[in-house]
Protein backbone atom coordinates (compact mmCIF):
# COMPACT_ATOMS: atom_id res chain seq x y z
CA UNK A 1 0.00 0.00 0.00
CA UNK A 2 2.69 2.40 1.07
CA UNK A 3 4.76 1.56 -1.98
CA UNK A 4 1.88 2.34 -4.29
CA UNK A 5 1.29 5.57 -2.45
CA UNK A 6 4.80 6.85 -2.81
CA UNK A 7 4.78 5.88 -6.49
CA UNK A 8 1.56 7.82 -6.87
CA UNK A 9 3.07 10.84 -5.23
CA UNK A 10 6.07 10.82 -7.54
CA UNK A 11 3.79 10.50 -10.55
CA UNK A 12 1.65 13.31 -9.26
CA UNK A 13 4.68 15.51 -8.68
CA UNK A 14 5.88 14.96 -12.24
CA UNK A 15 2.46 15.84 -13.58
CA UNK A 16 2.32 19.04 -11.57
CA UNK A 17 5.85 19.93 -12.58
CA UNK A 18 5.07 19.41 -16.25
CA UNK A 19 1.96 21.52 -16.00
CA UNK A 20 3.78 24.35 -14.25
CA UNK A 21 6.58 24.19 -16.82
CA UNK A 22 4.04 24.36 -19.60
CA UNK A 23 2.34 27.41 -18.13
CA UNK A 24 5.67 29.13 -17.55
CA UNK A 25 6.62 28.42 -21.14
CA UNK A 26 3.34 29.82 -22.39
CA UNK A 27 2.85 32.80 -20.15
CA UNK A 28 6.21 33.85 -18.82
CA UNK A 29 7.08 36.03 -21.83
CA UNK A 30 3.78 37.84 -21.50
CA UNK A 31 4.16 38.29 -17.77
CA UNK A 32 7.76 39.36 -18.22
CA UNK A 33 6.77 42.05 -20.68
CA UNK A 34 4.17 43.32 -18.26
CA UNK A 35 6.79 43.28 -15.52
CA UNK A 36 9.39 45.21 -17.47
CA UNK A 37 6.83 47.78 -18.56
CA UNK A 38 6.56 48.82 -14.92
CA UNK A 39 10.26 49.00 -14.02
CA UNK A 40 12.69 51.83 -14.46
CA UNK A 41 15.57 49.80 -15.81
CA UNK A 42 14.93 46.53 -17.57
CA UNK A 43 18.46 45.19 -17.24
CA UNK A 44 19.02 45.57 -13.51
CA UNK A 45 18.76 46.39 -10.49
CA UNK A 46 16.92 43.99 -8.32
CA UNK A 47 14.68 44.72 -6.42
CA UNK A 48 13.20 46.80 -9.23
CA UNK A 49 12.28 50.41 -9.04
CA UNK A 50 8.63 50.67 -10.07
CA UNK A 51 7.60 53.37 -12.46
CA UNK A 52 4.74 54.41 -14.72
CA UNK A 53 6.88 56.62 -16.91
CA UNK A 54 6.79 54.30 -19.93
CA UNK A 55 3.01 54.49 -19.89
CA UNK A 56 3.18 58.25 -19.54
CA UNK A 57 5.55 58.45 -22.49
CA UNK A 58 3.35 56.12 -24.50
CA UNK A 59 0.40 58.40 -23.84
CA UNK A 60 2.32 61.46 -24.93
CA UNK A 61 3.50 60.01 -28.26
CA UNK A 62 1.14 61.22 -30.98
CA UNK A 63 2.19 58.40 -33.36
CA UNK A 64 0.66 55.92 -31.02
CA UNK A 65 -2.58 57.87 -30.80
CA UNK A 66 -2.98 57.85 -34.55
CA UNK A 67 -1.91 54.23 -34.68
CA UNK A 68 -4.40 53.21 -32.03
CA UNK A 69 -7.17 55.07 -33.81
CA UNK A 70 -6.31 53.41 -37.12
CA UNK A 71 -6.01 49.98 -35.57
CA UNK A 72 -9.37 50.25 -33.85
CA UNK A 73 -10.89 51.54 -37.08
CA UNK A 74 -9.46 48.68 -39.13
CA UNK A 75 -10.45 46.20 -36.45
CA UNK A 76 -14.04 47.38 -36.22
CA UNK A 77 -14.63 47.68 -39.95
CA UNK A 78 -13.07 44.28 -40.58
CA UNK A 79 -15.11 42.71 -37.81
CA UNK A 80 -18.37 44.15 -39.11
CA UNK A 81 -17.67 43.18 -42.71
CA UNK A 82 -16.36 39.70 -42.07
CA UNK A 83 -19.14 38.86 -39.61
CA UNK A 84 -21.77 40.01 -42.10
CA UNK A 85 -20.24 38.03 -44.94
CA UNK A 86 -19.50 34.93 -42.92
CA UNK A 87 -22.96 34.84 -41.32
CA UNK A 88 -24.68 35.16 -44.67
CA UNK A 89 -22.38 32.55 -46.18
CA UNK A 90 -22.99 30.00 -43.42
CA UNK A 91 -26.75 30.54 -43.41
CA UNK A 92 -26.88 30.24 -47.16
CA UNK A 93 -24.81 27.07 -47.19
CA UNK A 94 -26.73 25.38 -44.38
CA UNK A 95 -30.22 26.46 -45.32
CA UNK A 96 -30.15 25.79 -49.03
CA UNK A 97 -28.72 22.39 -49.73
CA UNK A 98 -26.49 22.15 -52.76
CA UNK A 99 -24.01 19.60 -53.99
CA UNK A 100 -21.42 22.40 -54.17
CA UNK A 101 -21.49 22.69 -50.40
CA UNK A 102 -18.13 20.98 -49.84
CA UNK A 103 -16.16 22.97 -52.43
CA UNK A 104 -17.83 26.18 -51.27
CA UNK A 105 -16.87 25.61 -47.64
CA UNK A 106 -13.31 24.95 -48.77
CA UNK A 107 -13.34 28.17 -50.78
CA UNK A 108 -14.49 30.18 -47.77
CA UNK A 109 -11.82 28.84 -45.45
CA UNK A 110 -9.00 28.79 -48.01
CA UNK A 111 -7.48 32.12 -46.81
CA UNK A 112 -6.54 30.18 -43.68
CA UNK A 113 -4.00 28.24 -45.73
CA UNK A 114 -2.43 31.29 -47.32
CA UNK A 115 0.30 33.03 -45.29
CA UNK A 116 -0.74 36.51 -44.19
CA UNK A 117 2.33 37.92 -45.86
CA UNK A 118 1.13 36.64 -49.24
CA UNK A 119 -2.35 38.01 -48.69
CA UNK A 120 -0.72 41.34 -47.87
CA UNK A 121 1.51 41.45 -50.91
CA UNK A 122 -1.06 40.13 -53.36
CA UNK A 123 -3.83 42.47 -52.21
CA UNK A 124 -1.36 45.33 -52.41
CA UNK A 125 -0.55 44.43 -56.00
CA UNK A 126 -4.20 43.97 -56.90
CA UNK A 127 -5.36 47.12 -55.17
CA UNK A 128 -2.55 49.26 -56.52
CA UNK A 129 -2.33 47.95 -60.09
CA UNK A 130 -5.95 47.07 -60.83
CA UNK A 131 -8.01 49.29 -58.56
CA UNK A 132 -5.50 52.09 -58.28
CA UNK A 133 -5.96 52.44 -54.53
CA UNK A 134 -2.75 51.84 -52.67
CA UNK A 135 -1.87 53.02 -49.20
CA UNK A 136 -5.46 53.45 -48.06
CA UNK A 137 -7.17 52.29 -44.88
CA UNK A 138 -9.91 50.88 -47.06
CA UNK A 139 -7.57 48.50 -48.84
CA UNK A 140 -6.15 47.31 -45.50
CA UNK A 141 -9.68 46.67 -44.28
CA UNK A 142 -10.56 44.68 -47.40
CA UNK A 143 -7.37 42.65 -47.14
CA UNK A 144 -7.89 41.90 -43.46
CA UNK A 145 -11.50 40.99 -44.14
CA UNK A 146 -10.31 38.32 -46.56
CA UNK A 147 -8.54 36.53 -43.77
CA UNK A 148 -11.09 37.31 -41.06
CA UNK A 149 -13.98 35.90 -43.13
CA UNK A 150 -12.29 32.51 -43.05
CA UNK A 151 -12.01 32.54 -39.25
CA UNK A 152 -15.51 33.95 -38.76
CA UNK A 153 -16.88 31.36 -41.15
CA UNK A 154 -15.41 28.52 -39.10
CA UNK A 155 -16.57 29.96 -35.78
CA UNK A 156 -20.12 30.50 -37.03
CA UNK A 157 -20.31 27.22 -38.92
CA UNK A 158 -19.32 25.28 -35.81
CA UNK A 159 -22.30 26.74 -33.96
CA UNK A 160 -24.89 26.84 -36.70
CA UNK A 161 -24.67 23.20 -37.73
CA UNK A 162 -26.71 22.60 -34.58
CA UNK A 163 -29.45 25.02 -35.58
CA UNK A 164 -32.73 23.48 -36.67
CA UNK A 165 -33.85 25.37 -39.77
CA UNK A 166 -37.36 23.99 -39.44
CA UNK A 167 -37.62 26.52 -36.63
CA UNK A 168 -37.60 29.18 -39.35
CA UNK A 169 -40.35 27.36 -41.18
CA UNK A 170 -42.44 27.26 -38.03
CA UNK A 171 -42.02 31.01 -37.54
CA UNK A 172 -42.98 31.61 -41.15
CA UNK A 173 -46.16 29.55 -40.84
CA UNK A 174 -47.11 31.62 -37.81
CA UNK A 175 -47.01 34.81 -39.81
CA UNK A 176 -43.38 35.97 -39.66
CA UNK A 177 -41.94 37.54 -42.78
CA UNK A 178 -38.34 36.56 -43.64
CA UNK A 179 -36.85 39.59 -41.86
CA UNK A 180 -39.01 38.92 -38.81
CA UNK A 181 -38.03 35.25 -38.84
CA UNK A 182 -34.40 36.27 -38.67
CA UNK A 183 -34.92 38.85 -35.95
CA UNK A 184 -37.33 36.86 -33.80
CA UNK A 185 -36.08 33.31 -34.12
CA UNK A 186 -32.77 32.83 -35.95
CA UNK A 187 -30.74 35.69 -34.50
CA UNK A 188 -31.70 35.20 -30.83
CA UNK A 189 -30.49 31.62 -31.13
CA UNK A 190 -27.29 32.14 -33.10
CA UNK A 191 -26.04 35.52 -31.84
CA UNK A 192 -23.33 34.11 -29.56
CA UNK A 193 -21.67 32.58 -32.61
CA UNK A 194 -21.86 35.88 -34.42
CA UNK A 195 -20.47 37.77 -31.45
CA UNK A 196 -17.64 35.25 -31.20
CA UNK A 197 -16.81 35.71 -34.86
CA UNK A 198 -16.95 39.50 -34.44
CA UNK A 199 -14.48 39.45 -31.56
CA UNK A 200 -12.10 37.06 -33.28
CA UNK A 201 -12.14 39.17 -36.44
CA UNK A 202 -11.60 42.36 -34.46
CA UNK A 203 -8.63 40.98 -32.56
CA UNK A 204 -7.12 39.51 -35.72
CA UNK A 205 -7.35 42.74 -37.68
CA UNK A 206 -6.42 44.94 -34.72
CA UNK A 207 -3.20 43.01 -34.13
CA UNK A 208 -2.40 42.31 -37.75
CA UNK A 209 0.96 43.42 -39.02
CA UNK A 210 1.82 41.76 -42.28
CA UNK A 211 -1.45 42.28 -44.14
CA UNK A 212 -1.98 45.85 -42.95
CA UNK A 213 1.66 46.81 -43.39
CA UNK A 214 1.71 46.22 -47.14
CA UNK A 215 -1.63 47.88 -47.75
CA UNK A 216 -1.13 50.99 -45.67
CA UNK A 217 2.17 52.41 -46.78
CA UNK A 218 2.86 55.38 -44.50
CA UNK A 219 -0.36 55.15 -42.48
CA UNK A 220 0.49 53.94 -38.97
CA UNK A 221 -1.28 51.27 -36.94
CA UNK A 222 -0.20 50.02 -33.56
CA UNK A 223 1.56 46.92 -34.90
CA UNK A 224 3.28 48.83 -37.74
CA UNK A 225 4.51 51.49 -35.31
CA UNK A 226 5.79 48.83 -32.96
CA UNK A 227 7.52 47.15 -35.88
CA UNK A 228 9.00 50.44 -37.00
CA UNK A 229 10.16 51.36 -33.53
CA UNK A 230 11.94 48.04 -33.16
CA UNK A 231 14.42 49.10 -35.79
CA UNK A 232 15.77 51.69 -33.38
CA UNK A 233 16.22 49.16 -30.61
CA UNK A 234 13.84 47.79 -28.04
CA UNK A 235 12.22 50.59 -26.16
CA UNK A 236 10.33 50.21 -22.88
CA UNK A 237 7.35 52.07 -24.39
CA UNK A 238 6.81 49.00 -26.55
CA UNK A 239 6.50 46.85 -23.46
CA UNK A 240 3.92 49.22 -22.11
CA UNK A 241 2.05 49.05 -25.41
CA UNK A 242 2.16 45.26 -25.44
CA UNK A 243 0.86 45.17 -21.89
CA UNK A 244 -2.01 47.48 -22.72
CA UNK A 245 -3.03 45.36 -25.69
CA UNK A 246 -2.76 42.18 -23.66
CA UNK A 247 -4.91 43.73 -20.97
CA UNK A 248 -7.48 44.75 -23.57
CA UNK A 249 -7.74 41.27 -25.12
CA UNK A 250 -7.74 39.64 -21.73
CA UNK A 251 -10.55 41.85 -20.45
CA UNK A 252 -12.71 41.05 -23.47
CA UNK A 253 -12.35 37.34 -22.80
CA UNK A 254 -12.73 37.76 -19.05
CA UNK A 255 -15.85 39.82 -19.64
CA UNK A 256 -17.41 37.09 -21.78
CA UNK A 257 -16.48 34.48 -19.21
CA UNK A 258 -18.10 36.55 -16.48
CA UNK A 259 -21.30 36.90 -18.48
CA UNK A 260 -21.47 33.14 -19.05
CA UNK A 261 -20.67 32.26 -15.44
CA UNK A 262 -23.16 34.63 -13.88
CA UNK A 263 -25.88 33.72 -16.37
CA UNK A 264 -26.47 37.41 -17.08
CA UNK A 265 -26.51 36.40 -20.71
CA UNK A 266 -27.56 33.00 -21.98
CA UNK A 267 -25.13 31.92 -24.63
CA UNK A 268 -26.47 29.68 -27.29
CA UNK A 269 -29.17 27.16 -27.40
CA UNK A 270 -31.60 26.34 -24.65
CA UNK A 271 -31.84 22.85 -25.99
CA UNK A 272 -34.82 20.56 -25.82
Amino acid sequence: MAAINSKDIVLRAIQVLLLVALYIFLYFPILFITYVSFVDNIIWPFPPEWTLKWYARLLSMSDFHVGLKNSVYIGLCTAVLSTLFATSAVIGLLKYRTRWRGPMILLYISPLFVPGLLIGISTLMFNANVLGMSGKLASAIVANTTEAIAFSFLVILAQLVRYDWRMDEAAMVFGARPAQVFREVTLPTIWPAILGAFLVSFILAFNNLEISFYNLGAIPTLPTIAWGTLRHGIKPELFALASVINLLVFSIIAGLFFLIQTGLVRFGYRGE
Binding site: R166, M167, E169, A170, A171, P188, R266, Y269, R270, G271
Partner: peptide
Protein backbone atom coordinates in the same frame (compact mmCIF):
# COMPACT_ATOMS: atom_id res chain seq x y z
CA UNK B 1 -45.14 20.12 -35.99
CA UNK B 2 -43.95 16.62 -35.31
CA UNK B 3 -41.06 17.72 -33.07
CA UNK B 4 -43.16 20.58 -31.68
CA UNK B 5 -40.53 23.10 -32.88
CA UNK B 6 -41.09 25.44 -29.96
CA UNK B 7 -38.77 28.44 -29.99
CA UNK B 8 -36.17 27.51 -27.35
CA UNK B 9 -35.28 31.08 -26.39
Amino acid sequence: FQDFLLFPH
